[in-house]
């Protein structure tokens, strides 16, 4: 395994100007992505996981969102400060992204062949139409679409949710990216279809060697798919570890809380679940110090003074909590 990261995010701060003031949806996030590996980013709504992805893609909503601080090194280029035209060359070839709801990401008035063809035209201007069509059909087959030739003439609404997500994956793979960012790609799908899509992603990764950043709120999906995990809470990194370490030796009280709050199939039915009391603080009213303090069963006096730094407590295991010094 090549140990040099292809993507190195260092102290990323992404801010939004809103009517109620400036908020930092991502506040000091760092991680590495390596070829052939899958990094899972997990957290609840509003934790900043999607904003992290949009920052990497430089697709933050204009004019309110901007990268305030930090570096996003893709090989030796800093995406955070790259001019827009040079970013164009990275999107699709270097880093591609798929979204939760493929219906909104696909154009409803164009057939699949045109939408997929467009991606090839963009990435490979020298390709002629016959070749584009051939490549498109091959790609649809590769993502597991049966009767690919017929499906080329379908409109997005004629496809099921699972099929649409397969088309999205095909479009993302057209430029043969080194990194695929998948933002909750299976959340809108039924479990049996989710199983198909996850299986597809694993197979495609084995074949192409691309890296995957998989964003989800579902810890089950993380356990199944990822090599490394980043647990985010209210815009910050709570814990970062290889997947087995995270599930077997979770250290941050938030990770512990999340893991014990999920109903598991082997639980005794009708027993109370563990919960995390209260709720996520609003980004407008963040407490001083640790952002998890109001919900944390281990909160101490020092927690409200300054935010805990992310410390390494074991091989590749990082935690931001004063319980571990």
């Amino acid at each position: 395994m090549n140990d040099t990261p292809i993507l190195h995010v260092d102290n990323l701060v992404t801010a939004f100007d809103t009517e109620q003031g400036l908020i930092r949806a991502v506040d000091g996030v760092s991680f590495d992505v390596r070829a052939g590996r899958t990094l899972g980013i997990v957290g609840e709504s509003g934790c900043g996981k999607s904003v992290t992805a949009l920052s990497i893609m430089r697709l933050l909503p204009k004019p309110h969102g901007h990268i305030e601080h930090g570096r996003i090194m893709f090989h030796d280029q800093d995406i955070a400060t790259l001019p827009a035209d040079r970013m164009h060359a990275i999107r699709g070839y270097g880093i591609a992204m798929i979204f939760q709801e493929p219906m909104t990401a696909l154009n409803p008035v164009h057939k699949i062949d045109r939408q997929l063809g467009e991606v090839f035209e963009l990435h490979f201007p020298e390709m002629d139409n016959a070749r584009i069509r051939e490549k498109s059909v091959a790609l649809l087959k590769e993502v597991g679409i049966s009767e690919a030739r017929e499906r080329m003439n379908a409109y997005p609404h004629q496809l099921s949710g699972g099929m649409r997500q397969r088309v999205m994956i095909a479009m993302a793979l057209a430029g043969e990216p080194e990194i695929l960012i998948a933002d909750e790609p299976t959340t809108a799908l039924d479990v049996t279809i989710q199983a198909q899509i996850l299986d597809l992603m694993v197979k495609l990764q084995q074949k192409t060697g691309m890296a995957i950043i998989f964003i989800t709120h579902a810890l089950g999906v993380i356990a199944e798919l990822c090599d490394d995990v980043l647990v985010m809470y209210a815009g910050t990194v709570a814990e970062r570890a290889p997947v087995k370490t995270l599930f077997q030796h979770p250290r941050h009280p938030y990770t512990l809380g999340l893991l014990s709050a999920i109903p598991r199939l082997d639980n005794t039915p009708k027993t109370r679940l563990n919960t995390i009391r209260g709720m996520v603080p609003s980004l407008y009213e963040l407490p001083d110090g640790c952002r998890f303090q109001n919900r944390c069963p281990y909160a101490m006096a020092g927690c409200s003074i300054a935010p805990p730094p992310l410390r390494q407590i074991d091989d590749n295991h990082w935690v931001s909590c004063y319980l571990y010094r």
Binding site: V191, T192, Q194, A195, Q196, L198, D199, A218, L219, G220, V221, I222, A223, E224, L225, C226, V243, K244, F247, Q248, L259, I262, R264, L265
Partner: peptide, 16 residues
């Protein structure tokens, strides 16, 4: 098909 939150028991493939 339900992903199990335990990385040591990854899917025994029974995918519909």
């Amino acid at each position: 098909a339900i992903p199990v939150p335990d990385p040591t028991c990854r899917r025994k493939a029974e995918i519909l």
